[in-house]
Design a protein around this nucleic acid. Structure first.
Lengths: 356, 356
DNA sequence: CGATGTCATGGAATCGATTACATCGGCGTG
DNA sequence: CACGCCGATGTAATCGATTCCATGACATCG
């Protein structure tokens, strides 16, 4: 592979001049420029990003550590992150933690070893020392979706509180009183916050949330199935199951189906995180939709601000309730399928109950 | 950030010795080793991968360029690729082409600039000059899922021919005669092959495949919707629509639903690529499942063989038909939900009609 | 016309590692 | 006892870029 020296030789100039042409430094003669460009063309030369990074101490690369690539929410997040980063001239390296703290640390470490310019993290646990150290050591960092409390790192996330209240109101209005939740890991902020929001909203309606009705999941489908089975085994099973993410809702659906029961006739179901398939499940599932794309873009902007010396800003965007049929009572007819993946991107007035 | 020089100073040895300790070279005294290790610990030193790569001319990184991250098939592929690569001591950088040749080239270029050790590609088009040049220039490369004909690059893919024949047999047995297909881009191998297999299988049953029944999609949901609308507008609409990937099947579902029609009563639906949600759609969708995880792992093994000087091998694995209810006639009861995402990973004997 | 400034250019240092080569001390052997 | 070998270590070259500094050619100005 041709190096800058080869180009210099071919063009009959020094490497310094080649470098100047490539970084369009003003003081290069027109003649030299054309000769260098011709040599670059002739040799098919491409600058070695590794060497450049070593010298300039910047990689123009962002690391993104997400909790689970198989979760459509995170893949959409990853996509919007890459898109915005590309627009700002950065590349993105994705690390998938699979909800495992050890894997998360593995990726953070390799990313740091590669000297990425900044890190976007959605922490799998409540306080990886590695991440905390990196943050303290001054690695530009932004938390997205989930965060670790007590660290001075900007957070870009969505607030589901209002939407959860809307959901409880909706369920209450439908006559449901025994509501259960499949929670995410308490070590994650989204895990605990969603339970808290749910509990608070239920309190507003004078509804209790007994321990038996709060199952502990881990954001994976299998845990949703297991917890739901537990609910169904109860002497008095809940009337509604609210899954704190879409994969656990899938598991819940598996469990209900395995018993030959029907949603919503036998038990109602709602989920946090809307995905496009929820429109076509049997029945269509009522869910809380996050502005995923906007979260990803805002996170990148905050991180790049931080990297380039501007003050980064935390951002909180509202989530909103999308009512479908999985909790009973036909919802108003949904508008035709939106153009963009996912459905949640386009607010549909009829079903949007979020108060901003 | 501490460098090897700092460690050397702290330990009172030369950088060469530090490097030897870090790469556990045999000829280092026990004393020196402990002093270096202590210094590394004290300074929290981590080797700079950028510098190391520059010197050794290897990054221990693989590039993976996929056609669409939002497609669950590819995200599962990406996951298995990363997993296997990690097991072999490599990292993976994913580039998402979004089915756009220009974006694909962008990612290939940045990956090459970063001097990745090898490239895994699922080409979006039939022959990007950039990719062909890189292959000819000797970049270790393996095609996965899709490939570009006429290049000497190993291919790891699955053969859907038998499964498509099984599907047509299944449809024919159900009494369907007017079968239509939503094809993928003809420039992709998977795009054209699936149509070919479908056409060939139909010929075996003496069924015609009129032009009006072959719609041109682009592997995205919106095209599935559009093509299906076209089918429904026909004076004699097809009885079955076969979508060449899962996203176009989603679009087809959107279109059918928008007309107030029902699957399979008014029109039957089948898809290439099985995803876990197909079990819970209304109705559950009959699909052709690829051994996605195995494909990803085999692709990595082939690429790493090539990188490390062993002869790489092309691999073709069979896909299999998974019958559900979207084409009519209740299928045999599916077994309880499998443990692993996606359902397709665990062959379920009752529904597996593939002949190996 | 001499002093000063501007512009294009090249030489060489540098980034942080790896590694070939030289050096040195100690030890075994003839 | 001298020689040679081996193990431990350091010095310095190297990878491919960027960039500081010096240099020389010209132009401009008083």
């Amino acid at each position: 592979m041709a190096s800058i020296k080869d180009v210099a030789a071919e063009a009959g100039v020094s490497v310094a001049t080649v470098s100047r042409v490539l970084n369009d430094h003003p003081s290069v003669s027109e003649d030299a420029r054309t000769r260098v460009l011709a040599a670059v063309e002739a040799l098919g030369y491409r600058p070695n990003a590794v060497a450049r990074s070593l010298r300039t101490d910047q990689t123009r690369t962002l690391g993104l550590v997400i909790s689970d690539v198989l979760n459509p929410y995170f893949t959409e997040l990853a996509r919007s992150v890459e898109e915005e980063a590309r627009a700002l001239g950065y590349s993105v390296i994705i690390g998938n933690a699979d909800e495992r703290p050890d894997l998360q640390d593995h990726h953070v470490r390799t990313l740091l070893d590669r000297r990425i310019d900044g890190l976007l993290v959605s922490p799998t646990d409540g306080g990886s020392p590695l991440i905390l150290d990196a943050a303290r050591a001054g690695t530009p960092m932004v938390f997205v979706d989930r965060w670790i409390p007590g660290v001075d790192v900007p957070v870009v996330r969505s607030d589901g509180r209002a939407a959860v209240r809307d959901l409880v109101a909706h369920l209450h209005g439908l006559g449901h009183r025994r509501l259960a939740i499949i929670a995410g890991p308490a070590a994650t902020t989204t895990g605990s916050e969603r339970v808290e929001a749910f509990r608070a909203a239920m309190a507003e309606y004078g509804l209790p949330l007994p321990d038996a009705y709060t199952g502990q999941g881990d954001f994976q489908a299998e845990s949703g199935r297991r917890v739901t089975e537990g609910f169904l085994d109860l002497p008095e099973p809940p009337e509604v199951v609210f899954a704190a993410d879409n994969l656990m809702a899938l598991g819940a659906l598996d469990a209900v189906r395995a018993r030959g029961l029907r949603v919503p006739r036998d038990i109602a179901l709602a989920a946090f995180d809307d995905i496009r398939w929820f429109v076509h499940t049997d029945p269509p599932i009522t869910a809380i939709a996050q502005p995923t794309g906007e979260l990803g873009r805002a996170a990148v902007r905050a991180l790049v601000d931080r990297i380039e010396g501007r003050p980064p800003q935390s951002v909180t965007l509202p989530a909103r309730l999308v009512v479908r049929r999985s909790c009973g009572e036909p919802a108003p007819q949904e508008p035709p399928a939106p153009e963009e993946f996912p459905a949640s991107q386009e607010p549909s007035p009829e079903t949007n109950r979020s108060q901003t």
